[in-house]
Design a protein around this nucleic acid. Structure first.
Lengths: 221, 221
DNA sequence: CCCTTACGCTACGAGTCGTAGCGTAACTGG
DNA sequence: CCAGTTACGCTACGACTCGTAGCGTAAGGG
């Protein structure tokens, strides 16, 4: 993609990259997405505004990279000995990250922008979505090693399932935190893990009522 | 909130309201959130730009109302005879709505903006979140009437559960559609409903492996 | 008929985006 | 050491948008 053969001429300053991404995060913390300006980021990073535009085509792409770096750095899968505990802890950590002013807001804004920008969508896919799916894959592997989940025969189906779990977990936490604007606390995480592992009727009915599994899976057309 | 006692002077044109909201939706379809301008909306609606600012303090609040009206108008709960079928159908309808250019993008953008705007957050809560939760409440009621779900003793716990289910469904669909940028199709909806009703291990393992319910619910602190 | 409020219109200040053009700095190959 | 190539800082700029002020006019109510 990017020209790997570039041996001649002055090289790009790697430190400038770090400074710019750091300045972007700092500006996001102080100003938020909507009031963040390229001029401000450049000033904070100690570089010229034109340097920003030489590396990122616009504000959105810059922020995607800044947020991706933040997620990479902050999100790790705990290993607490059970799938349920790992899910709960991951949910809490992800929620804590989303409530930070530079994370959740920016992610939403950038995703909104991406609807009309194929390049940006691709960047989000590769630098955020695909990278964070590793948590689901790793978590499942550990659960399989523990015997909590079966090893799956069909790799395609396994991949689809992992994708869905990723969307369910990330989506639920994002929606609760940012759209509903309600806190993701320990009790919520417990209930959520319960739904994820045992289904909605389990948490709705407690132990007193029957399982009420609501029909069997439709004949799998 | 809004001054209900306003009997004197020229009344506000109700038709202008409709024209503005309609123009906003049309502009969102054509231009998307980021390129929509107040001047453009005013021109489409056939009113002066100042009239927009007399009714909405800024672009975000205007778009919230436009999206809320769209959701109210488009989202209805189907009654297909089983909780599972209703969930699948609702997921598909919601996803179809989100892929429309005036819906998903705008919602994300407005939520992003709301992080730093308490008034906007409140408006989202009342005009979108709380209004759409009716679908979950209604769906549960029907499921209880069918005997698919138990009637709950504790109303507070029941409300919490409903909130969570709302976040899980809406969040998962939004995340898959807008963040992961993958389609929400019938197979995905089937798998999702399976997870929601029976838990993740059910869809991961199929019928061949054991249930593997991964520990019992932690002793409920 | 007077008062009050809404409306259309024009103009404007403030701020941002993203680019062009120039001279200079840094690194490479001969 | 020198020529070629690329990155950088700086200034200036055009285009655009937001949101407001001020004015004259339209539409109702007591």
């Amino acid at each position: 993609m990017s020209p790997p053969a570039r041996r001649t001429g002055r090289p790009r300053s790697a430190e400038a990259d770090r400074a710019i991404l750091g300045a972007t995060r700092a500006a996001l913390v102080e100003l938020g997405w909507s009031k963040l300006t390229m001029g401000d980021v450049a000033a904070r990073a100690g570089v010229a505004k034109t340097t920003l535009y030489r590396r990122w085509t616009n504000k959105s792409e810059l922020v995607v990279d800044a947020v991706a770096a933040l997620l990479d750095e902050q999100l790790e899968l705990p290993d607490l000995g059970s799938l349920r505990a790992d899910v709960e802890e991951t949910v809490l950590r992800f929620a804590a990250l989303l409530t930070r002013p530079e994370a959740g807001t920016s992610l939403m804004a950038v995703v909104a922008e991406a609807t009309r920008d194929e390049a940006l969508r691709e960047r989000i896919r590769t630098t955020i979505v695909n990278r964070q799916k590793r948590l689901v894959l790793l978590g499942r592997e550990r659960a399989q090693a523990r015997g909590e989940l079966p090893r799956e025969a069909d790799p395609a189906a396994a991949a689809r399932t992992a994708d869905m779990i990723f969307d369910v977990i990330a989506g639920a936490v994002m929606h609760r935190t940012l759209v509903s604007a309600d806190p993701v606390d320990a009790p919520w995480a417990r209930d959520f893990a319960e739904v994820l592992l045992c289904g909605f009727p389990a948490v709705a009915g407690g132990d007193e009522a029957g399982p009420a599994t609501a029909q069997k899976p439709a004949g799998s057309g």
